[in-house]
Write a protein that binds this DNA or RNA. Structure first.
Length: 337
DNA sequence: GGCCCTCTTTAGGGCCTT
């Protein structure tokens, strides 16, 4: 097995440009090295974690905690106080998050124009140093964003630290036809204590905002993000009449894997799946394959290795990023053409 | 569905995501 080197290619570009990022990444790598094991995960929002952190051998015990979403006025997304109780791993979770998000607040957040974020960040080292990099993954009831629903979301802020990971099951309010893929069954998610997407969106927005640095931008990274995760997310937000924040930049790691393959990654063969990349880099599987948090842990490590091999600084990642709006415009253009 | 490759571009097949 290859040793997982905790370094990133930002260290290969002039120090005057990236010293702040480099120090941040080093911190994150240390954090990742701690959290990629089975013992030190922490979650802002918890839910059922069947078969993830403890593998199949761990004995699960449940401890109910509550995540509250409360309304304050007529603009509040949820006009009534709701309490979502989650079954937690014994000794793993101590977060009790009280959230209060106004619709007007989100609208103001979304009104800000971010037409040329990528270019500005690429040109401005101060903006680049304010980036928050978050890997994420979703499990769904199928591949079609039109007909299927999200049933699990996981995120990891690569800077690490307290509350750096986020994971939750999502109640799709429908039958789950593909538990053979991810191990998530209908009875696990179709429960009143599992949040529905409309319950989750304000919490998700709050989580990401909590990770953002003042004046900084967030970059959300997923494997096959362009064709799967982001369009799926856009669709689910749209069903809840919420726009994906325009300052969320997305990066797809699949093109990076293809570049790596092209550059002579013969060991990678023609496979660019997350599993193939994990095997290529000798990254051990944490928890169950095809569970969101497990795949996020893998992706975080794969990203570091790929960017190192491809000699990609963070600014290059930003240059390759896209927004939800980019995809929506592209789709409209293709439909009209 | 989008991207990439090739036995190609006036196309088709394979891969990736659940």
């Amino acid at each position: 097995m290859r040793t997982v080197a905790m370094c990133f290619s930002v260290l290969q570009v002039p120090r005057c440009r990236i010293h702040t990022l480099a120090s941040s990444w080093w911190e994150s790598f240390h954090s990742l090295s701690r959290t990629s094991g089975n013992s030190s995960n922490f979650k802002l929002l918890g839910s059922n974690n069947y078969g993830l952190e403890g593998g199949h051998s761990r004995r699960w015990t449940r401890r109910p905690i509550s995540t509250k979403t409360e309304g304050r006025n007529k603009n509040t997304l949820s006009s009534k106080t709701s309490s979502i109780t989650h079954d937690m791993l014994d000794g793993k979770i101590s977060a009790n998050t009280k959230l209060s998000i106004n619709k007007s607040e989100i609208s103001e957040f979304q009104r800000i124009q971010y037409c040329d974020i990528q270019q500005k960040i690429a040109e401005n080292k101060d903006l680049a140093s304010l980036l928050t990099l978050i890997t994420f993954d979703m499990e769904t009831t199928g591949l079609s964003r039109e007909n299927e629903r999200i049933i699990e979301i996981a995120m990891q802020d690569l800077l690490g630290g307290e509350n750096s990971t986020f994971q939750t099951l999502v109640n799709p309010e429908r039958y789950v036809p593909n538990p053979h893929v991810h191990g998530i069954s209908t009875h696990m998610v179709n429960r009143p204590d599992v949040p529905r997407m409309k319950d989750l969106i304000p919490i998700l927005l709050q989580y990401v905002r909590s990770r953002q640095k003042p004046g900084g931008n967030v970059v959300l990274i997923a494997h096959n993000a362009r064709c799967f995760d982001v369009p799926f997310l856009i669709k689910e937000f749209s069903r809840c009449s919420v726009e994906v924040p325009p300052d969320w930049l997305f990066v797809d790691t699949l093109p990076l894997a293809r570049e790596l393959m092209k550059l002579g990654g013969s060991k990678l063969s023609s496979k660019t799946s997350l599993q193939a990349l994990r095997e290529y880099y000798g990254i051990p599987l944490v928890g169950s394959a095809h569970r969101a948090m497990s795949d996020v842990y893998s992706l975080s490590l794969i990203l570091q290795r790929m960017t190192f091999d491809l000699k990609l600084p963070v600014s290059s990642l930003v240059e390759r990023s896209f927004t939800a709006s980019d995809l929506i415009k592209l789709k409209k253009k293709k439909n009209s053409g």
